[in-house]
Design a protein around this nucleic acid. Sequence first.
DNA 1: GTTATTGCAAATTATTTGCATATAA
DNA 2: TTATATGCAAATAATTTGCAATAAC
Lengths: 153, 153
Amino acid sequence: MDTGATFDPAPPTRYHPLMKQDPTQALRDTGVRVTRQREALLKVLTEASDHPDAAELHRRARTLDDSLSLATVYRTLSVLEREGVVLRLALENGGARYEVADAPHHDHIVDLDTGQITEFRSEKIEQLQREIAAELGYEIIHHRMELYCRKKT
Amino acid sequence: MDTGATFDPAPPTRYHPLMKQDPTQALRDTGVRVTRQREALLKVLTEASDHPDAAELHRRARTLDDSLSLATVYRTLSVLEREGVVLRLALENGGARYEVADAPHHDHIVDLDTGQITEFRSEKIEQLQREIAAELGYEIIHHRMELYCRKKT
DNA sequence: GTTATTGCAAATTATTTGCATATAA
DNA sequence: TTATATGCAAATAATTTGCAATAAC
């Protein structure tokens, strides 16, 4: 069985335009001010291989800048999302989770027992999605797909 | 182009075991008490062709039982979800939306401009999903897929 | 008659916002 | 210098919960 799908426990390649170079400089070029707290958050985000929520990012980034407030975490995440630097993930339950947009588009497998998230992409599925949307006269702007799974015994 | 996908603006066929007969009687058989407020909510849910949130369901059901409280709406929805009678939809933003589990599994297309939701199913995609999960030793318990689209011009 | 369900109000959780102060460019 | 970002505390929004009263079976 070869589905042509590829997997990434933690994607290595830079992808988003803003991530091709130093993200802080790239942000500056877009007219976004780079503050101490934004640098801390960016560092924590790029180093995270899991998918932390705002509170967890706050916890981690505070070790780099202990004045950082949770409100600023939310505000910064929203700026970074608008700039295309991070992606917000809204899983089935609980609050939003975040990941750096440093890899090509992918979808997620959630391990229901461990909570572990695996990323994968399937060009075949993407193609089918586009065709299905097109049948209804639609163009896909973006999409989400999550497989909630358990290890086979 | 034939993707084999099928579409339902509002699915007609009863599906869930509990929906094959009178849902209220079916619930009673499972040991769930059928109250005035639960009947009102069930009626509103089965008659809805859109995907209302809790507040909207409250509004609609209150015309049938004006004593119905929002807290009871939430509690009832959670009971109905546990019983498999309704599905909770957690779209990209905003609160949860609900639909009756009266049709086979399907995914959703969300019109970004009108908010309209179209249901579709694609056995091809489902098959690919299962294969991808299997490659990682996973079995899919359930999944979600939403295509956020705009009408092609 | 029991036991589950309800309404109400108060509590929670996740996130956002107003405002005076601090700071990047 | 001057607009933007920050921290703090208060405000929202969606959902949940404690508890005494009520109703289903």
